[in-house]
Design a protein around this nucleic acid. Structure first.
Lengths: 120, 120
DNA sequence: ACGGAAGTACACACATTTTTGTAAGTATGA
DNA sequence: TCATACTTACAAAAATGTGTGTACTTCCGT
């Protein structure tokens, strides 16, 4: 028995592979920025919102939950009023964030070039 | 003269920074996959479309143009009929693709864990 | 001291915007 | 007839924004 119906090794190029969804969470508009922001340490919801320019409460909450469900972000809620919730990266989340950050830095570092040759 | 009105160093966390747009092109649903697919070498439009599961002609063309404008992908059209167009990565595109690929591989490699702990 | 305003971490309903898909068209060779 | 590499118009789907509510606490002014 060697032949299986569907492939067992994850492949993002494959339409039906579940890795696609996870990749999308990580590379989503706000997901990327959340991971980068949390690299510097724990942040609470409101601080994260201030750190990431342009994000709405709705999208921040939504994106955080996806990353939490995937196991990249840890949520710690303190049972106090007014509410206090801390967010930080899991070990795996840290690895992912490092890759994302490397990508963002590369782009930031070459932004001049990129924009310069655009109008060519 | 030390104080400038707006910051000159790119920062993706800043709402108004142009690096945001470039990052979005690269991390877009199809942009990521195009870069990964082109890492293995030159591909023509139709081959790329077959390689990337689930992409429509429309989105492939659109995403390719964005990456081309940003200088990550090079387009080479041969003046023949029927049309023949080759796509490959620029040096900068190659660097970006490597980072993206590293990210995708990390996710693929940990997909088991990720899915396993989800239902917890 | 007392009323008022702002901050907190969201959820929810609703509106708008953005993204993506679909189908059709093109000129021609195999 | 099918494949090629797109473009364009139209339609559907998905993402995102906006405003409201919550149950309090702290800070502010008077």
């Amino acid at each position: 028995m060697k032949k299986m119906a569907h492939d067992l090794t994850p492949d993002v190029l494959n339409d039906r592979c579940p890795s696609r969804a996870v990749l999308n969470h990580v590379t989503s508009r706000w997901g990327v920025l959340i991971l980068i922001a949390l690299q510097d340490g724990t942040l609470r919801f409101s601080a994260l919102r201030r750190r990431i320019g342009g994000v709405s409460e709705r999208m921040l909450a939504q994106s955080l939950r996806l990353l939490e469900d995937d196991g990249f972000v840890r949520r710690t809620a303190h049972p106090v009023v007014p509410p206090h919730v801390d967010y930080d990266l899991t070990p795996l989340g840290y690895e992912v964030a490092a890759k994302v950050h490397a990508l963002a830095s590369l782009i930031e570092g070459n932004l001049g070039q990129i924009i310069a040759q655009r109008k060519t």
